[in-house]
Amino acid sequence: MAPGTNTMTNDPILKVEHLSMRFGGLMAINDFSFEAQRGEITALIGPNGAGKTTVFNCVTGFYKPTMGMIIMRQKGGREFLLERMADFEITRDAKVARTFQNIRLFSGLTVLENLLVAQHNMLMKASGYTFLGLLGFPAYKKASAESIEIAKYWLEKANLIERADDPAGDLPYGAQRRLEIARAMCTGPEFLCLDEPAAGLNPRESLALNELLRSIRKDSGTSILLIEHDMSVVMEISDHVVVLEYGQKISDGTPEHVKNDPKVIAAYLGVEDDEVEEVIEEIEEIEETQGGTH
């Protein structure tokens, strides 16, 4: 385990092992392993093109990894090998929800309808795969009322209740981001993957987002994995940070640890060619003093 990883309990909800993803000749992710602990907010950071979104797409089934294992462990102890499942099964069965870097809402549906679509699988079962519901069975009516209650709960959390009947495409950008998170939560996930939730938000919206994420973790016990560029968000809310560069993990630990990791600093700020040696020496020195196992 990397230095600074002082997570007390070892109850990983997601274990990624030796993940590799190759696009033709490009090795987007190269032997990448990390764990996300249950009940924590794990941040995945790294410079542009480091492969963060690729990791995300592998976890949520939108890409099939070239190599490696992704294990999702639910509360009950049930385990899923995500790399073998189709994308919609990952959400439906393994309870992993996701959002997108470029917001993907159903812009022509209202805000409320967006949240109802997210409860599709629950409602489908309640409506007897449409047939019983079409005949007006009460079970569906009950489930449908419940689904509206769930939607209301999340609308209030995301501070969108006033706009529930407006088309989703009509919302301002920040509200759309929050709606997308609320929609993902309506699928009832145990693990929520957020792809740059703070991108394009102003500082105030960004604060509101932090609040929302914290309350998601606290109230619904959902673990979160997020990709983020906004360091204020990352440092503020995450319990555990994984840093990716050129498809490889360069650092892994608490925000404090990662912030001071010279490799991370080098990766983010960049170093002159002639300074590379120096930096490496420096890193080695630091590692020695810390007694790291790298």
Partner: peptide, 9 residues
């Protein structure tokens, strides 16, 4: 794509 991310087959 959003549909699939919500678990809809």
């Amino acid at each position: 794509i959003a549909c699939r991310s919500l678990g809809i087959n």
